Simulated scan of single mutants.
Amino acid sequence: MRTLRHRTCGSADASSRVLRSLSIWRTQQSTRTKSISDRPVGPGQDDMQREFETSKRISRDRVLAAFRFIAPDEDIDLAEAKAPKTILQYASVWRLYTQWCQERGFSAVPASPAQLREYLRHLQGLGHSPSSLDSYLAAVAAVHRYRGYRVDRTLLIEPLKAARRRAGPPRQARALMGMELKKVVGGLKADHPRDARDAVILLLGFACALRSAEIVGLDWQRRGSTLAGGTGTLGFERSGLLVVLATSKASQVTPVELPIADREMPSLTVWVERWVALAQIGAGEPIFRPIDNRGRILARRLAPPAIAEIVRARMLAHAKATGMPETEAILLARAFSAHSLRRGYCSTASEAKLPLGQIRRRSRHGSDELLARYIRTAEGRRQSGLGKIGF
C-alpha cells in the first residue's frame, strides 16, 4: 500500500484593436475556464452544456441507428469497422448533404463530379476550414461506398488546393517543453484539489503524449462502464504507473500500454496519489472531473475541450507569476492547446536525442512522416544548419 507523499510539487488604431481584442479574449478565457471545466451542471440546465462538460455517452443503439441511416442495405456488422464517433459524423454530414440536395432538386446518390463541385462551393460559402472541407467530402464519399457507388473527386483537387493556399499554413499549438512544464507544475499546491488535478493532467498528458480525449477517458485502476465515456485506465504497478488505452485514435481494437516508471518521472506518482486521495476516486470511476466554484469535486467526467482550457489557464497563470506583462502573457497562453502536451513530449524527446522509433512507440503516430513534423521543429532549433561556420 502506497503512502501519500505531500509535496509542493503599427498604428494607433491597429494597437487599439489588438488591445481591445486581448481584453475580450481575457474576459472569455476567465469565464470559460470556470464555466467549461469547473462549473457544476444542474438538472435544470440545457443538454448542450451538459454534453460539453461531460464526455458524450454514445450508446450502441445510437451508433447502429446512424449506420442504418447512411447504409440501409449493408450488413449491420459493418458498423464495427469504424469508430462510433466516425459513424455519427458520417450520419450528421449525410443529413446536411441530402438536405442541400433536396433544396436544389439534386439526387443525393450518385453524385456527379459537377454536383460535388457545387457542394464544395456551398461549404466554402459557409466559411469552413480546409480540414473541415476534407472531412465533409470524405463523409459523402464514404456513404457512397456503403451504397455501392464510387465518387469521382477529380474536379475537387484544384479547388481544395486553392482553399488551403488561401487559408495559409494550419495553426500549430506551441509545444509545452519538459523544463517549462516542470516550472509550471512546481508552482502548484499539493493540498489544493484543482492544482492537484491539473498537475496530473499536465504531467500525464506529457509523459504519455496523450490526446485530450484519451486523457479524459481514463478510469482509475480498471475500466468502468463504456456508456460513461471510459476509453482506458490508469493505475499503479510495481515499477510505477501504467496507462492502458483500450481504444484510441490510432488503435481502435488493440489495447495500448504506456508504462511510466517511478525512476523516470517520480513527480507524476506523487501528484496521482494526492489527487486520488483528495477526490476519493474509486476503482472504475473517472479520474478527471469538474470542480465547482465551491471547491466540490464532482463525480462526472471532464469533456475533452476542458483540457485545452486547463492548459491555457495554467500557462497564463505561470507567465503572470514570472512577471510577464499581462498582454504578453495572454498572447503566450493563446499559443497553447491540449495538443501542446503531445507536441511537448515529442519535441523534448527529440532534443534529448531519443531514437525516432522509441518516440513513435510512445506517441503512437501513424507514420514516421507525421512524427517528423514534430522532430524537424525541435531539430531545426537545435541545429540551425550553420554548425561551426557562424561568426
Rank of each mutant, 00 (worst) to 15 (best):
I70F: 00
A12P: 10
P193R: 01
L241D: 03
A303M: 07
L258G: 04
V63E: 00
G10K: 11
R343H: 08
V244A: 02
V270F: 04
G385E: 03
V93M: 09
F106P: 03
R60Q: 13
S92W: 08
T226V: 14
R263M: 10
H365L: 01
V311S: 00
R26Q: 11
G105Q: 06
T31C: 10
H339R: 03
G366V: 06
T247V: 15
E326V: 09
L120E: 03
A283N: 12
I24E: 11
G390H: 11
G187M: 08
M324H: 07
G127R: 04
S337V: 00
T247D: 00
H192E: 13
W100D: 05
V93R: 11
R364C: 10
T31M: 10
L332M: 13
T226F: 10
I291D: 00
S107W: 05
D152Q: 04
V256W: 05
P130F: 03
P286G: 04
K353R: 12
V311A: 01
R121F: 14
V185H: 06
Y149G: 07
Y136K: 06
L96W: 11
G224L: 07
E351G: 15
P290C: 02
S16T: 11
I201R: 00
I359V: 15
D47N: 10
R300F: 09
S35M: 13
G323E: 05
L354F: 11
L218F: 05
T254C: 10
P130Y: 01
R5F: 09
V216A: 02
R381S: 11
L298G: 03
P130S: 05
N293E: 12
R274D: 04
M179D: 10
R147V: 09
F52D: 13
A308T: 15
V63A: 01
L316R: 05
R312A: 07
L331H: 08
R117Y: 08
H122Q: 12
A167S: 13
T233L: 02
A299G: 15
G125W: 03
A319W: 06
R95V: 06
A71D: 00
A163W: 07
R197V: 00
A139Y: 06
R343C: 07
R301L: 00
A313I: 04
L356Y: 05
Q383V: 11
R117G: 12
G217P: 02
C346Y: 03
E51C: 15
S212T: 08
Q115M: 13
I375S: 07
L88N: 06
G205E: 02
H339F: 01
R360C: 08
L268G: 04
R5Q: 13
Q252I: 15
M179A: 15
D292C: 06
T31R: 12
T33F: 14
A279F: 01
S15I: 13
E237V: 12
R381C: 08
D292R: 05
A65G: 08
H365Y: 05
A162C: 09
V256D: 07
G230I: 01
S347C: 15
M179K: 10
V143D: 01
A163T: 04
R20L: 09
E51T: 14
T3D: 10
I70P: 02
G10P: 10
L22R: 02
G232L: 01
P255A: 03
D191C: 13
P290H: 00
W275C: 04
A250W: 08
A308K: 04
L155C: 06
Y136L: 01
